[in-house]
Write a protein that binds this DNA or RNA. Structure first.
Length: 441
DNA sequence: TCTGGGGTCCTAGGACCC
DNA sequence: TCTGGGGTCCTAGGACCC
């Protein structure tokens, strides 16, 4: 029988910050999204502040106020609460988190021949054939290695399917298991007892909508889904639910995905630090996004044939006027040249632009991607330009060596960006920038 | 004043074909 | 007068994930 492990860092972004400022370990710590918009990571001390929050009553007043979570709360709404409890607040420092993530996955990978890097802070391992080891001890070894090597706390969940490994990981974080839970050695009644206490919405793949639909047919816990009649499930729901049902019954439907497939679309979007009211600024912002997207495109060796541009006003301020629109453009020949993509973006901006709106967010999507190495010339399109490839390669090299945006298009106008992100609580890039190394006094 | 960003997969429905 | 049915492909939108 297959055995999967899921290793997952506890509140990863917050833990990365604490790793470099260990004095914070007993204080609430939160990390904010771009623009210091809302809370995207919180350590246990910060999550404990949940008890001070309650959801407002529904408009009918019939629903009881429920405690809610500080996760994903807009920062300005909880700023006072956080301050009152001496919370350390960080803007997101993705350069640091990405570097820590690489180190984390490298360490995890040493514990099994097959690894799937599932997200910035999660890896699956294939532990099939490791049955003769004590896998709980093995999980503890993984935890110790990562704690010693990176100062990051992780939890380890083990089961006969990915869904069960996820679920075990979820339970391992909760307390009674010292960070490691191996379901493969538990009896069926013992497992069922655990599943009975997992809400259906906490099962991997069940979001808000499906949770409500499942609850409506009497499925409230992971155990309910495990014991449900598969025929009834497949009549009423999509194949995903049936798959979850099987996976909860120890039948692995999802395999380990070892190879890192190239992305099928590349998206770069941002909310602006300050709303945009001039076409020139929107164009400048979108050309900047296009430039970053094109870098990512080249980094995975792809070319794109479609460019989509979108923009929207602030959905939280409809009184300022609401407008959102998008525009897709196709290129005659797929490309990875920043200049050609930027050209399309400018055309898109002119199509989308309406006077008298305050633009709050915009983005660029590159799609219809294919591998550059397999690209064919089109009889009716301009021939592939070798100089373009050389120029882009030089641009990428210089920017990698000298820092982002060292070399950019004039229309990006890098010194003068009124719409740039707000980031008032940024920590140093300890591991990726010589100017920002940790100093020890 | 201040509300994130980047992805994948699935499905329904329309266009089109024979 | 009577006006089918089945298949494929594509796209938009919804739902989910972290």
């Amino acid at each position: 029988m297959a055995i999967f492990a899921l290793i997952d860092a506890n509140s990863f972004y917050a833990s990365c910050e604490i790793a470099f400022q260990p004095g914070l370990v007993n204080r609430p710590v939160v990390v904010l999204s771009n623009n210091d918009g809302c809370i995207v990571a919180a350590n246990a001390h910060a999550k404990a502040l949940n008890r001070y929050l309650t959801k407002p009553l529904g408009s009918g007043g019939y629903r009881a106020a429920q405690p809610t979570s500080i996760m994903f709360q807009p920062y300005f709404k909880v700023e006072r609460l956080l301050k009152a409890h001496k919370t350390k607040v960080f803007s997101s420092n993705y350069e640091l988190y990405a570097d820590m993530s690489q180190r984390l996955h490298t360490l995890i990978g040493q514990f099994a021949p097959k690894q799937e890097i599932y997200s910035i802070d999660e890896s699956f391992l294939d532990l099939t054939g490791f049955e003769k080891h004590n896998l709980t001890d093995y999980g503890q070894q993984i935890r110790q290695t990562i704690l010693r090597g990176l100062g990051l706390p992780v939890a380890v969940g083990i089961g006969h399917s990915k869904t069960l490994a996820k679920l075990a990981n979820h339970l391992a974080k909760k307390g009674d298991f010292s960070g490691v839970l191996d379901l493969t050695v538990l009896s069926e009644p013992a497992i069922n007892l655990l599943l009975k206490n997992v809400a259906i919405g906490d099962v991997w793949g069940i979001g808000k909508q499906l949770r409500q639909q499942l609850q409506a047919v009497g499925i409230h816990t992971a155990l309910d889904l495990k014991l449900a009649d598969p025929h009834k499930l497949s009549k009423r729901f999509s194949v995903n639910i049936l798959r979850s049902h099987l996976e909860l019954n120890h039948q692995a439907c999802l395999q380990l995905d070892e190879v890192d497939e190239p992305k099928q679309q590349i998206l770069r979007s941002r909310s602006f630090g300050q709303a945009i009211s001039e076409r020139h600024d929107l164009r400048q912002a979108l050309v900047n996004f296009a430039s970053r997207a094109a870098e990512k495109l080249r980094a995975q060796g792809s070319v794109c044939q479609a460019v989509t541009v979108f923009c929207t006003t602030n959905p939280f301020k409809p009184e300022q006027g609401a407008y959102r629109n998008s525009c897709s453009l196709r290129l005659a020949l797929a490309t990875d040249d920043t200049r050609l993509i930027a050209e399309q973006v400018k055309i898109g901006v002119d199509k989308l632009w309406r006077e008298d709106f305050l633009y709050h967010k915009a983005g660029v999507i590159l799609s219809e991607l294919s591998q550059k190495s397999q690209q064919q010339n089109d009889l009716f399109a301009p021939a592939l330009n070798e100089k373009s490839a050389q120029l882009m390669a030089v641009m990428d090299q210089i920017n990698q060596k000298m820092g982002k945006h060292s070399l950019h298009l004039a229309s990006q106008d890098h010194a003068n960006q009124r719409w740039a992100m707000r980031q008032n609580h940024h920590s140093p890039r300890y591991t990726t920038n010589w100017q920002e190394l940790l100093t020890v006094s």
